Simulated scan of single mutants.
Amino acid sequence: MTGARSTSGGPASGDGQPEQTEHGMTRRQLVRHAGWFGGAVVLTVAGGEVISHVAHDHDSAAAASAARTAADPNALRFVQVSDSHIGFTGPANTDVTGSFTEAITQINSLGFRPDFVMHTGDLTHLSTPEQFDQVKQMLTAARTDRVFTVPGEHDSVSDNGRAYRQAFGRNTSGDGWYSFDTHGVHFLALVNTLSLEKLGHLGVDQIAFVRRDLAAVKSDTPVVVFSHIPLFAMYPKWGWSTDDAMQVIALLRRFSSVTCLNGHVHQLFTKTEGNITFHSATTTAYPLPKPGQGPAPTPQVLPAGRLKDALGIRTVDYRVGGQALAVKDVRLA
Results as ranks from 00 to 15, higher is better:
residue 252 L to A: 05
residue 132 F to V: 07
residue 221 T to P: 06
residue 10 G to Q: 03
residue 244 D to L: 10
residue 147 V to H: 07
residue 330 V to T: 11
residue 157 V to I: 15
residue 13 S to D: 14
residue 105 T to V: 07
residue 27 R to G: 14
residue 278 F to Y: 15
residue 181 D to V: 01
residue 135 V to I: 13
residue 331 R to Q: 12
residue 332 L to T: 08
residue 48 G to F: 02
residue 278 F to T: 09
residue 32 R to A: 14
residue 132 F to L: 13
residue 69 T to V: 06
residue 306 R to K: 14
residue 253 R to P: 04
residue 4 A to N: 10
residue 106 Q to F: 02
residue 159 D to T: 00
residue 130 E to N: 05
residue 70 A to I: 10
residue 96 V to E: 03
residue 214 L to I: 03
residue 161 G to I: 10
residue 266 H to C: 02
residue 326 A to G: 06
residue 78 F to R: 05
residue 84 S to V: 04
residue 184 G to T: 07
residue 248 V to H: 12
residue 148 F to S: 05
residue 173 S to F: 01
residue 97 T to M: 11
residue 112 F to G: 07
residue 49 E to I: 12
residue 267 Q to G: 14
residue 248 V to Q: 10
residue 139 L to Y: 11
residue 112 F to P: 08
residue 156 S to H: 09
residue 247 Q to T: 04
residue 41 V to W: 08
residue 306 R to E: 10
residue 25 M to W: 14
residue 49 E to P: 09
residue 62 A to G: 06
residue 303 P to L: 03
residue 45 V to N: 06
residue 235 Y to K: 06
residue 131 Q to L: 01
residue 205 D to C: 08
residue 172 T to D: 10
residue 59 D to S: 08
residue 101 T to I: 06
residue 116 F to A: 03
residue 72 D to F: 06
residue 243 D to T: 12
residue 187 F to T: 00
residue 72 D to M: 05
residue 205 D to Y: 10
residue 138 M to A: 12
residue 242 T to E: 13
residue 237 K to C: 02
residue 97 T to W: 12
residue 21 T to L: 15
residue 214 L to Q: 05
residue 173 S to W: 03
residue 253 R to W: 00
residue 332 L to F: 08
residue 40 A to N: 15
residue 310 A to E: 08
